[in-house]
Design a protein around this nucleic acid. Structure first.
Length: 594
DNA sequence: CTAGGGTTAG
C-alpha cells in the first residue's frame, strides 16, 4: 500500500503534476463549471493516468455539479474507486447548493455505507437538502445522527436544523430548538424569522425581529428580506418604510434580493411609485426583480405600465420565465388588455418555448371571462387537455359566469365543481350567489342548507387598517374594539350620508350569509367598512386610508366606498385578496372591472 | 495535493 502510494507519487513527480499548479489541475480550473470543457479535462486526466488523484477528481466533480449536470457528476463519481470524506463533503455540499437535494441525500447515504463519518460540514449541507425537500422523517433521523456524532451544539448545524423544521411546517419544534440555542448567531435569528414568515405567521416574524432588536442583535440584509416580506403580507407600510430607512442610513448594500423584497413590500403596501424608485436604483436586476415590478403594476390595475415594462424586459432585460408570464397575463386580465394578453400567451409558447401551466390557463379564462367574452373563455377551457382541466380553471370560468349572469352555464360549472371539490366552501357560495341573482331563492336556501349539513363555513373575512404605525384588525360585525360604539355610530351616520348622495345598498338577496346573525350584520358591517370607519375617525383630512382585506371585496362594499370617498373627501385604498382598489372622488381605479 | 457551512426575493 505504502509502496503503491509512493509509486503514484513518483509518476506524478515525473510529470510535475502533483500539486495544484500542475497543468492538469489548471486545465480543470480553466474548464470552470461547464460540462464540455470538463469532459475534455477528464479525458486528459485519464490519458495521463491521473484518475487516482483524488484532489483533482474532487475539483472536477465539484465543478461538474456547479455546471448543473448532476448526471455527469454521478457518472464521474462511480469511476472513483476510493472516495474519501473530502470528496463526499464536496459532493453533498454541491448537490444541495445547486438544487439537487435528492442527490445530496444519496451521496450522504453512500458516505455512511462507505463507513466514513460525517462531520458538522456534512450535516449543514444534508440538512439543507432535507429542508428543500420538506423531508420531515429523513431530517429527523439525520437530526439524531447529529446528536450521536456530537454536533448538537455546532451553531451552523443548529441554524440549519431550525430552518429545516420551519420549512417542514414544524414551527413549534423549530422554535423549541431555537430557544435552546444559548448564543444565537444572526443566521439562527434569520432562520426563525423567515420560518415564521414563510408559514404565513407575519406577526410572529415581526415580533421576533423586535425581540432581536431589544437584545441588541444587529440585523443583516437577510433579516430585512424576511421582515419586509412579512410587512408585504400584512400591508404594514409603516414598518416597511422604517426598515427601508434603516437599510439606507446604515449603508447596507441594496443587493438584488433585498431590492426585490423592497419592491414587493412597496407594491403590496400600495406604493408603486416607491417600488419603481427602488427598481430604477438597483444596480443588478434579474428576472425575479423584473417580475416583481411587473406583478406590482398588475395588482394595482396598471396594465399599461406593466406591459411597457414587460416590453423593455423583452428588448433589454433578462429572459422572462413562467412566473413572469403569470404576472403579465394577470396584469392584462385586471386591466382588460385582451389583445395584449392573447399576444403574450402566444409569445410565451412560440417565442420563449415555455409550457403554460394551470396558473396561465386561469389567467386566460379570467381575462376573457371578465371582458365578457364568455364563449371564447369556454372554448379555451374546452380545448385544454383533460389533465389541464383543473378546479382552478373551472373556478375562473364560474367567476365569469357569475359576473356576466350566465345562469345555465354557471349552474352547470358550479355543480361540476361541487362534485370534484365538495369540501370547498367557495363553490357553494358561488352557486348560491348565482341562484340569488336569478331570483331562485328556494335554490339559495337549498345550497345554504347543504353547506350547513356538510359542516362547511364561509371563510371568515377580516380587514386591517394602519393608524400611527399600528395595525388594527376588524372582522364582520366585530365588537371587540374598545371604541366599538363610536365606530358603529360613525359608520351608521356615514352610510346615511352616502344614501343621501345616491348610494343604494345591495339587496339582501345577493348576499350569502350562512348564520342568521351574520345576515343581520352582513350588509352594514362588513369588515372593510368597519376598518374604513375607524381609519376616518382616527386620521386627519388629506391622509390616505389603506385597508387590507383577506378576501375579495363584495359589490356592495365596492359601491359604498366610492360614495364614502366623496362624502368624506378622502382617498381610500383597499387591497383585497387579488388586487388594489384606489377610491377617489367617487370612482375606483379598477373601473368596476375586477 | 483540495474548501468550507447555516438564513434571503417574483
Amino acid at each position: 500500500m505504502e509502496a503503491k502510494q509512493r509509486g503514484n507519487q513518483q509518476i506524478d513527480l515525473q510529470h510535475g503534476e502533483s500539486h495544484s499548479h500542475s497543468p492538469t489541475y489548471q486545465a480543470v480550473l480553466r474548464a470552470g463549471p461547464r460540462v464540455r470543457p470538463l469532459q475534455q479535462a477528464h479525458a486528459q486526466i485519464v490519458v495521463l493516468g491521473k484518475h487516482c488523484n483524488l484532489a483533482l477528481l474532487t475539483k472536477l466533480l465539484t465543478l461538474a455539479c456547479a455546471a448543473g449536470s448532476i448526471t455527469y457528476t454521478r457518472r464521474l463519481f462511480l469511476t472513483v474507486s476510493k472516495p474519501d470524506s473530502f470528496l463526499f463533503n464536496s459532493l453533498i455540499k454541491g448537490s444541495s447548493k445547486f438544487g439537487f437535494p435528492y442527490d445530496a441525500v444519496w451521496f450522504y447515504n453512500r458516505m455512511l455505507l462507505a463507513d466514513i463519518s460525517p462531520s458538522n460540514y456534512t450535516f449543514t449541507s444534508v440538512i439543507k437538502a432535507c429542508a428543500d425537500l420538506s423531508a420531515l422523517r429523513l431530517g429527523r433521523s439525520i437530526h439524531s445522527h447529529v446528536l450521536i456524532c456530537g454536533y448538537g451544539s455546532d451553531s451552523y448545524v443548529q441554524a440549519a436544523l431550525v430552518a429545516f423544521y420551519a420549512k417542514s411546517s414544524e414551527l413549534s419544534v423549530a422554535r423549541r430548538l431555537f430557544d435552546r440555542i444559548p448564543e444565537k448567531t444572526i443566521v439562527a435569528w434569520n432562520s426563525m424569522i423567515s420560518g415564521y414568515d414563510q408559514n404565513g405567521f407575519s406577526r410572529e416574524a415581526i415580533g421576533l425581529f423586535y425581540q432581536m432588536r431589544e437584545l441588541g442583535v444587529e440585523p443583516d440584509s437577510s433579516t430585512f428580506v424576511s421582515v419586509l416580506s412579512a410587512c408585504a403580507q400584512l400591508g404594514a407600510i409603516g414598518l416597511g418604510c422604517r426598515v427601508h430607512d434603516y437599510v439606507v442610513s446604515n449603508g447596507f448594500d441594496v443587493n438584488v434580493v433585498l431590492g426585490t423584497s423592497l419592491i414587493n413590500m412597496y407594491c403590496r403596501c400600495g406604493n408603486v411609485i416607491k417600488a419603481r424608485n427602488v427598481f430604477d436604483l438597483m444596480s443588478e436586476r434579474n428576472v425575479i426583480a423584473w417580475t416583481a415590478m411587473i406583478s406590482g403594476y398588475g395588482i394595482h390595475g396598471y396594465g399599461r405600465e406593466a406591459m411597457e415594462l414587460f416590453g423593455q424586459m423583452q428588448t433589454r432585460g433578462p429572459r422572462p420565465n413562467n412566473i413572469t408570464f403569470v404576472a403579465v397575463l394577470s396584469a392584462c386580465a385586471h386591466a382588460g388588455l385582451i389583445q395584449e394578453g392573447r399576444r403574450a400567451f402566444a409569445d410565451m409558447k412560440q417565442e420563449y418555448g415555455l409550457v403554460p401551466g394551470v396558473e396561465h390557463h386561469v389567467c386566460m379564462v379570467d381575462m376573457l371571462g371578465r371582458a365578457g367574452l364568455l364563449n371564447e373563455a369556454y372554448q379555451f377551457v374546452k380545448e385544454l387537455n383533460p389533465g389541464e382541466l383543473t378546479p382552478a380553471v373551472w373556478t375562473a370560468m364560474l367567476g365569469a359566469c357569475k359576473m356576466h349572469k350566465k345562469f345555465d352555464l354557471g349552474v352547470q360549472v358550479a355543480e361540476h365543481l361541487l362534485a370534484v371539490e365538495p369540501e370547498n366552501p367557495g363553490h357553494y357560495v358561488m352557486l348560491s350567489n348565482i341562484y340569488a341573482l336569478a331570483g331562485k331563492m328556494d335554490r339559495v336556501e337549498l345550497v345554504r342548507n347543504m353547506m350547513i349539513r356538510r359542516g362547511l363555513k364561509k371563510q371568515v373575512g377580516y380587514s386591517t387598517v394602519e393608524v400611527d404605525q399600528k395595525t388594527y384588525l376588524f372582522s364582520m360585525g366585530d365588537k371587540s374594539h374598545p371604541e366599538t360604539d363610536e365606530i358603529y355610530r360613525y359608520l351608521d351616520d356615514l352610510m346615511l350620508r352616502c344614501r343621501e348622495a345616491g348610494y343604494v345598498p345591495a339587496s339582501e338577496s345577493v348576499m350569502h350569509e350562512v348564520e342568521e346573525e351574520e345576515r343581520e350584520y352582513a350588509l352594514r358591517y362588513h369588515s372593510e367598512k368597519l376598518a374604513i370607519a375607524f381609519g376616518l375617525l382616527k386620521t386627519s383630512l388629506g391622509m390616505v386610508i389603506t385597508v387590507v382585506k383577506n378576501l375579495r371585496m363584495c359589490e356592495d362594499c365596492h359601491s359604498a366606498i366610492k360614495y364614502i370617498s366623496v362624502v368624506c373627501n378622502r382617498e381610500i385604498v383597499v387591497r383585497d385578496k387579488l388586487r388594489f382598489h384606489h377610491f377617489n372622488n367617487g370612482s375606483c381605479s379598477c373601473l368596476d372591472y375586477w
